[in-house]
């Protein structure tokens, strides 16, 4: 109990004194996971929309794949991304292993299926007649898609929150492809693991609290946006 109180005290101390190392780690976590979420948002929504609006052979199989991908274990993603990015691996020439970019790639791989699956379901759920109506009013196909995405924005924002939440809290892939390098690829989760193994439980608890706090703030902003307009 004493340890937990110490941790909470330490967390507020680190937060209010703007401890440069902790601030750096926190900012890096937000940058990396935010960028990964943006990449996933782009890929996920576009592929999700295409699959939702088209009928083609093997469609069910593709959807099953996407749904399976929503539960991709981060360590497995980390392992494969590491193998691909090794200097002597297929993508070794990029020289991005143990860089923030590598973490962004791994996290995007984790978050993309999540956003894809949710946006697919969201777009598909819109009434079929709506599409016909939009087209009948003279919209181009592209304009129709834009309207559909706008119409599905509430579940899409939920998808963003789910994607961001899964990558900012993920540790297995980040430590494998990033290497937990001080001041460079050390993010909140990997720092927490390291401080725990160093026996600095108070710092570990403090980092954990910061992680929760920032996840909460980001989600609160997105929820605010999502709930501003009541669904019709």
């Amino acid at each position: 109990m004493e340890l937990i109180l110490e941790g909470i005290k330490k967390a507020f101390w680190l937060l209010f004194t703007f401890d440069p190392e902790v601030m750096g780690i926190t900012l890096l976590s937000l940058k990396i996971s935010g960028t990964a979420t943006l990449v996933s948002l782009f890929l996920g929504v576009s592929v999700g929309t295409v699959v939702a609006l088209n009928r083609f052979p093997g469609r069910r199989f593709v959807i099953s794949l996407i749904n399976t991908g929503m539960g991709l274990p981060p360590v497995v993603v980390g392992l494969f991304v590491t193998i691909f990015l090794w200097r002597n691996g297929p993508l070794g020439f990029l020289q991005v292993l143990y860089t923030p970019t590598a973490i962004i790639i791994a996290q995007a791989v984790i978050a993309t299926p999540i956003i894809m699956g949710v946006s697919l379901a969201a777009i598909q759920k819109l009434p079929e007649n709506m599409r016909l109506q939009i087209l009948a009013l003279g919209a181009t196909r592209f304009q129709m898609i834009v309207i559909l995405i706008k119409e599905a924005r509430l579940p899409l924002l939920a998808a963003v929150m789910a994607g961001f939440g899964s990558v900012i809290s993920e540790v297995g892939a980040s430590i494998m492809v990033g290497g937990n390098i001080k001041g460079y690829t050390r993010v909140l989760t990997t720092a927490t693991v390291m401080e725990t193994s160093r026996g600095n439980f108070d710092v570990a608890i403090a980092l954990g609290i910061l992680l929760l706090l920032f996840s909460f703030i980001i989600n609160a902003i997105l929820t605010g946006v999502q709930q501003r307009e009541r669904p019709r």
């Binding site: 900012l27 937000l30 940058k31 990396i32 935010g34 960028t35 979420t37 943006l38 860089t99 923030p100 970019t101 962004i104």
Partner: peptide, 8 residues
């Protein structure tokens, strides 16, 4: 996020 993510 874009600003944060640029010089990586």
């Amino acid at each position: 996020f874009l600003l944060c993510g640029s010089p990586l």
